[in-house]
Design a binder for these strands. Sequence first.
RNA 1: GCCGACGUAGCUCAGGGGUAGAGCAACUGAUUCGUAAUCAGUAGGUCCGCGGUUCAAAUCCGCGCGUCGGCACCA
Length: 658
Amino acid sequence: MVQISLPDGSVRAFDAAPTGLALAESIGRGLAKAAVAMRVDGVLMDLTRTIDTDATVAIVTRDQPEGLELLRHDAAHALAEAAKELYPDVQVTIGPAIDNGFYYDFHRATPFTPDDLARMEERMREIVDRDEPIQREVWNRDDAIAYFQSIGEQYKAEIISDLPQDEVITLYRQGDFIDLCRGPHLPSTGRLGKAFKLMKLAGAYWRGDHRNAQLQRVYGTAWASDKDLKAYLTQLEEAEKRDHRRLGREMGLFHQQEEAAGMVFWHPKGWRLYRRLEAWLRERLERESYVEVKTPQLVDRKLWEASGHWEKFHDSMYIAENEEGLRAYVENPKERIFALKPMNCPCHVQIFNQGLKSYRDLPMRMAEFGSCHRFEPGGALHGIMRVRNFVQDDAHIFCTEDQIISESKAFCALLLGVYRDLGFTDVFVKLADRPAKRHGSDAVWDKAEQALAAACDVSGLPYVLNPGEGAFYGPKLEFTLRDAIGREWQCGTLQVDFVLPERLGAFYVGEDGAKHHPVMLHRAIFGSFERFIGILIEHYAGRLPMWLAPTQVAVATIVSDADGYAQEVATLLRASGLQVELDRRNEKINYKVREHSLAKVPVMLVVGKREAEERTVSIRRLGRPDQETMALADAIAALVADAAAPDGVQSPVAAAAE
RNA sequence: GCCGACGUAGCUCAGGGGUAGAGCAACUGAUUCGUAAUCAGUAGGUCCGCGGUUCAAAUCCGCGCGUCGGCACCA
């Protein structure tokens, strides 16, 4: 007799140990149909296994998150089976479930083509129709290795060899295909359903290491139902519509071209957006007692050697000299050569080092909107998000060890306020702590890590540990925000640095009259302006908040009789500080409304004969079908108020009140 | 950097060894119209670059550059 407790608290008794399938059947047909696996006393298992002892069991269904994950994993297996059937020369490697789907990495001498993708997907559907039972088998380790070697599956044999000695080796068999897998799996391939689609081909390195063989990765998406699949594909189309490269062109913000790969040509409208954002952030920094500096683009290699960057990154640094100097450098690499700065910190230390600093000067918060060049590998470039020339909203806080906590707290507050004002409220943090190879004593690391953790706590920021991922010079916080369609972007950073000040000879005179090295906090909120603006564009799908919109108001006439008045309206708006486009073209109002809507102009003022006579305007806001007619003076006042940048002033006051 | 795909008018794309195509945009003209496309006409090209095959190359082949999707990288 086996007693099984269910999640609703009820208990069912069975004479003989039932399988998960039988249990599900006994509860209900609908549940049995949707079942993909079960949890027995918390352990995920195949439905085909029997429940031998009294236990608490929950049936996992295909629409639950973990059920969906299993489904995707099964889709990967079906893909592998299809690939093996169609192309006997492939070797299978790994095929996990991922967000929205799955992939499988294959080894094969000849590359797959898009046609192969279609064939494999077709074969997967046949495998589902065959409804092959999926059977779990426990194998002896050496037998398993020998077996996979015998069928030419070297990668599988290697995976098993590397599994811990005490690991139970399970293989899953479906049709003629047998694969190493931890499981669990569906009872049969028919349960997978057909809500999947193979999406793309890509290269991927074996075990993620570029020194290893390159495999062919096939990506697919898989869902519990056709409806979900369709919704996902629609969502992809929507994401494509907010692609910053597309919107950048459509809205006339910037362009990029071959002659300056990885760099940005900002057009007037894009540059206006950039400048507004910069000016706004600058004001925020000044309020927090940052001082702004500007440092050289070209700096002698000596400085980069001293900072340690040359040794580690000289491959991706641009060097510069005149022709004669370059020739001399090529002949003798010891010749003097300049490099375009890949970052600002060494230069900031140079400024700090001018004149004697006292502990009374600390903390010193030195900011720079520093233009940096890095020779990023060609395959890494991506619109304006990953470029070779970018501007960091960089700052370095020179402080004492005792000031790390308060400075970190203040920075978190500043960062959160900036994000919030830009429409990002969903922020989380990773705390990357000490790596194996590091500088500085454990006591100092303790202090720094604690300071960063404390800063998160006080700021109400949840953080997850990113163990061992800190820089060799200190721990760091990595700030990640979630955009309107749920994508995550790591933007901000706060890094504690015990090393650079020492390497570059920075010191201050302490209360004790002795010289001490300051701690440097490297911090950024946007990370890079280029990338952050890309994120903003995609977050808002181009419909930027009014204060950032490159064109804030379009004044459009209905008839040419209103031209004079429209001109006057535009002039008054401009005098009030708004960015205005005047559209007096001989076009129908429908046409103009459509055009300015597509251009994502937040406000349209439509003026016809009536408005001109009454000195009013008809206001139409982007994305809304209705209009409102208002006296001109009232409208201007309202629009000016709408266009005000968030000033964040209320936040410290509110914080003080709390 | 690696794997794969792609590069034709301002944009989106068709064509695939023998005279370069469409829609939208642009320009010209007509139309003066009330909130997401008025009509007609005109003009527009180093088919990414270089080399090769061929009587003939946008088309086939090679190399390069760039873009896209991944992978690796990201101080």
